[in-house]
Design a protein around this nucleic acid. Sequence first.
RNA 1: GCGGGUAUGGCGGAACUGGCAAACGCGCUAGAUUCAGGUUCUAGUGGGAGAAAUCCCAUGGAGGUUCAAAUCCUCCUACCCGCACCA
Length: 854
Amino acid sequence: MHYNPQKIESKWQQRWEKQGLYSPDLDKAEKPFYNLMMFPYPSAEGLHIGNMYAFVHSDAYGRYIRMKGFDVFEPIGLDGFGIHSENYALKIGEHISDVSKRTEKHFYQQLKMIGNQYDFKRTLETYQPQYYKWTQWIFIQMFKKGLAYQRESYVNWCSQCKTVLADEQVIGGYCERCGAQVEKKLTKQWFFKITDYAERLLKNLESLSTRALGSKVKISKEMAQSGIDWSEKTKIAQREWIGKSEGVEFEMEILDTDQKIKVFTTRLDTIFGMTYAILSPEHPIVTLLLKTQNSRQGRSSPKAARIQNREEVEEYIKEAKKETESVRTDITKEKTGVELKGIRVINPFNKQKTPLFIADFILGYYGTGAVMAVPAHDQRDYEFAKKYGLPIKEVIKNKNGKSSVEKKAFENYGVLINSGEYNGLTSYQAIEKMITFLKEKKIGDKKINYKLRDWCISRQRYWGPPIPIIYCEKCGTLPVPEKNLPVLLPEIEDFRPTGTDSPSQVSQGEIWEGKSPLASVKEFVNTICPKCGAPAKRETDVSDTFLDSAWYFFRYPSLDYQDRIFDKQRTQKWLPVDMYIGGQEHACLHLLYSRFITMFFKDLGLIDFEEPYKRFFAHGLLIKEGAKMSKSKGNIVNPDEYIKKYGADLTRMYLMFLGKISRGGDWQDSGMAGMTKFVRKAWNLFSDLKKDGKGILDLSFMHKTIKRVDNDLERLSFNTAIAKIMEYVNWYKENQDNFSKKERKLVLENLVLLLSPFTPHLSEELWEKIGHRESVFKEKWPEYDSELVKEEIITLIIQVNGKIRDKIDNIEADIFKEKAKELAISRQKIKKWLKGKEIKKTIFVPGKLINFVV
RNA sequence: GCGGGUAUGGCGGAACUGGCAAACGCGCUAGAUUCAGGUUCUAGUGGGAGAAAUCCCAUGGAGGUUCAAAUCCUCCUACCCGCACCA
């Protein structure tokens, strides 16, 4: 009777599905537990071993929780809409619809093969109209609340993918998907006002979870329910991304004009050290100043300063625009800029007139796009001043009066000098007093800035949900009436992106008309105005794939409702998600977006909570033999291959044995051999069920193992849990001839139960073999006898000056200090070490050790 | 530059709150069984000294705290990940 994984696995997979074992009654479930894993985007290559790595860990936890008595809902779906899938189709020259049909089938096949307790009756794909109908519905709600808006904006343009990218999809100036350099383009885009939620997104991180959590911390269900439970690392990443910065915003007049520039600073205390100011090249005032000059109005009015080096300035702006984002944001690049000659700004504190520059290292999108430059106390300004020979005026000294700005800027806080009436104040005092001054003059106030920017939603691509907007010449921009949803994505032959121009072909201030592939489909574009009935046109952009995935977990429990995005009662019962396992790479964006959408749902009154995930756990990266897996290296592990050869159970077990889940793992083929040995060994134990021995009586090791495995699973320490099961098997083998029939059954039953989260098929088969008729997953997780897990007999360690010199075996765990000391000093070895020395101190750790300090 | 992480045998990795470093597994060595080979079983396996008992040295490096440090603190080095001129 050999272990035949292929046969066993398909047998149980079929039986599970037939019995609907993993489809809980969502309304009647008494102890709901929503066990979610990040749904994969289906590439045609199929399920990646990295997906499987994450999924089986998540499933093992879900199965453990189920056996702990919860009604576990573990759904799966496909994040099939989006650039990644579309680009793949383009690459292989097939239509995305065909590719999707194929990958969908293949993916679900694979997902069934890995043996997770997925509810295959409740799957979703983001490209199905019944799903994206609701994605569009969300857009409309956003629009109605004024949270979806259109604006002309410089956006990231990937010339290879021919589309606009979200900031998040630009990695160091390059396209996340194809690796091409990203350029800047001025175009009209749809945005979600996530910045309105910045403070809330930030604050919830603080208030809802005060515990520092990580893989080290043991978390019970009760604890997890009390708040959001994320690792500190993830929260820091979110906090950084939101990037809150508290400072001051104030106005400075431009000499001889009616214009003012607004600047933002966190170091108002250094204002007396301002020797110039800088604008970003895109700053509207620059355009305005150039324009004023064009119309020659300036000449007639004494109140109109003019840019004297106009051509130079225009040239610089043109150059800056041409430069790709990656070049422009390259921090190592020497700072460049050009003075707006003839233009001066007035420092409101000392009325000093300073030159004004434009420079490309000033970002148009952060703060006000304008800064006061204090070279003595800001390194960037310092470098710039050195290069252009601008004065460096020191205004802050540290407390001992020391400072030096000879070689670099002094950026610390300190005490003010050269600052008129503020001299002698500390930085903090000065800032307060200066704010009062600004307020009195009504030219400035405190201001909070965030790095977080509004979420650019539109994509000039085919494979996404069409943005449900209609443009009517008379009535303006209107949402598609909800009853007309979904706006179906038309089936078209040629779905290639059609954007043509590169940004350098579009001159300053001009708007590039981005064209989506949908723009060429007349039947799609031409429609009638929902308000006046006149001919109108549809929006031709589709929405970002991040929107599809920002709310999918709301849909799973309510898939049977066609008339609403989700059922409130159902949702309140199952959400927030109890456990969410996914990649660290999504710790910023996906998490942030889905938190935002959840808050929005709450504000719409659809739900009562505003954080989607009670517990989020980020798994590490799976590598192979010390190297990242990649196609170019040819070291990809194909899960199908291993499942076929070794079975899913073995592959699962091996993936979970590799190491700590939070740290990822190093796949080595040789390790599979060891796992095979172990599984076979375990399997073979069940061939002598009927054997009867004299009985071993002491089953405390069994109880201890149950306790340890339980403890490990609770804290997601899968690898050590497996190690402990291995020890258990070894223990069984040592005693195998001695168990009584009754003991044998008990010990083996518990082995099956402990194994079941890891090797579900094998466990079912063995459970049946023992003689059970019901699924092992209807069983309760084994319990241990808390009396028997107590360590009664220990090895007492004897140290002298902290070094181990002897051990005494078989000591009662509750031995007293005096008794232990007596025993210890009487040992020959210890006598040797203590000879001629006085014991100054004796440290006794009950149940562990005794240490003599001499 | 900023933020986060990591460093333990030949390898993957254990060591939850400081208390027997190296659990568990791979690999390797020797032996047994089978023998075409794999499988299986037994013993051994951090380094050094020693015939042995035993002793010394070992958790990236240097200091420190402590009776006691892989674990805590300071500094340094290397690698990985994320963000990157955020005013």
